[in-house]
């Protein structure tokens, strides 16, 4: 027989060739952005436009979740580490310390806009929903005041939470614990709802108590963790008109013909109510920029300038087109000026 098998030497050569460039793979011509999947569409929009406008390689944007993104961001300074992290909540003290421990000390914080957390049902749902924050808490928390004491959530029907609500089963699809959306929901909806309960107010419990006791979502069925994929929640709602879903405002905005929002304390989410702060479930969206990389990583400074431009952040800008709610003018101008001046962020309070 002849020898159709490549000799071992040739194989070794291909292998060596394949491995060779690994040594040279240190330079980087693309900006790297990690972080929240809520900020992802906005970073993506700026990245693509920036690439098309300037002809520079478009930044690489990766949705890792807020917590995971900050961990990667804080791992160090250098081309191996990302330049920007998007966050759907403010960086915590612990995370700031983690950054400092790895030499990432000069960070600029940019509050780019506001996102509404929306609770929505299918348009086929006949009831005109309006939930007060305590109702929301009683429906979704693991532990609630019931029967005179603090105990596991007994409510299975909305009418059990509030007799004015329909007798439909409580079935709410929401984000998993790894998600920044979940963190934000617990803070702005669950903690606020918990604080407003008669039981908590009459008992004189403080914020520490609320954080310790009101942070757990129920695990017995009515609250369903639906993974990070908000589109799946939207499709689930279309198939099940009795169910509710929790997601970012941009998904309601894109699916307004299929979904209707649940009013929270009488306020429906839209651009105006979220920006004005009258809609209670709003949260800030942040970018954290590693200043040590600015001027070093090619195009980073221009990219930050594009992100801070009025065409992106302002009213009528292309980020609003994607569902982000712009900051009011004065605050926006302050953020833009601070970011372009590379103002370092102060360590967050505990």
């Amino acid at each position: 027989m002849s020898v159709p098998v490549p000799p071992a030497a040739a194989l070794a050569l291909t292998l060596a060739l394949a491995l060779l460039p690994a040594a040279g793979a240190t330079a980087r011509d693309r900006i790297r952005i990690v972080g929240s999947s809520t900020v992802f569409p906005y970073s993506q929009a700026v990245a693509e436009l920036f690439g098309r406008l300037t002809g520079a390689p478009a930044p690489v944007v990766e949705a890792t979740g807020t917590g995971g993104g900050i961990q990667i961001f804080c791992a160090g300074v250098g081309v191996r580490h990302p330049d920007i992290v998007g966050a759907s909540r403010a960086m915590t003290r612990w995370e700031h310390d983690l950054c400092a421990a790895h030499g990432v000390t000069d960070i600029t914080e940019a509050l780019i806009g506001i996102d509404g957390l929306v609770i929505a049902v299918a348009r086929a749902n006949p009831f005109d929903w309006d939930l007060a924050l305590p109702d929301l808490y009683l429906a979704l928390a693991a532990d609630v005041p019931a029967g005179g004491g603090w105990q596991a959530n007994p409510f299975r029907l909305w009418s059990g939470v509030d007799p004015a609500l329909p007798g439909a089963p409580i079935r709410v699809y929401g984000p998993p614990p790894t998600s920044g959306t979940r963190d934000a929901f617990v803070e702005v909806a669950m903690h606020a709802g918990c604080r407003a309960l008669d039981f908590v107010r009459a008992g004189g419990f403080d914020d520490g108590w609320v954080r310790a006791n009101c942070s757990r979502m129920r695990q017995d069925g009515p609250f369903i963790e639906a993974g990070e994929n908000d589109n799946l929640i939207v499709q689930q709602l279309a198939a099940d008109p009795e169910a509710m879903g929790i997601f970012g405002y941009s998904f309601l905005y894109e699916n307004a013909d299929r979904l209707k929002p649940v009013r929270i304390a009488g306020v429906a989410p839209d651009g105006a109510t979220i920006a004005a702060g009258t809609y209670p479930l709003a949260r800030p969206l942040f970018l954290y920029i590693k200043n040590a990389h600015r001027g070093v990583i090619p195009h980073l400074e221009e990219f930050v300038a594009e992100f801070m431009s009025e065409a992106a952040l302002g009213p009528g800008g292309y980020l609003e087109e994607r569902g982000m709610v712009p900051l009011p003018g004065g605050r926006r101008a302050a953020v833009q000026a601070a970011v372009l001046a590379r103002a370092p962020m102060p360590p967050p309070a505990d």
């Binding site: 999947s37 970073s43 990245a47």
Partner: peptide
């Protein structure tokens, strides 16, 4: 599963793969 515009020019450029591209698109609003 990153958002990358432009095809990778070599094995060390950032890129997606078919299944991760499906993952990204499935999650777009």
């Amino acid at each position: 599963n990153a958002f990358v515009t432009g095809a990778p020019g070599g094995p060390f450029d950032a890129a997606t793969a078919l299944p991760t591209q499906i993952f990204i698109w499935a999650d777009s609003p």
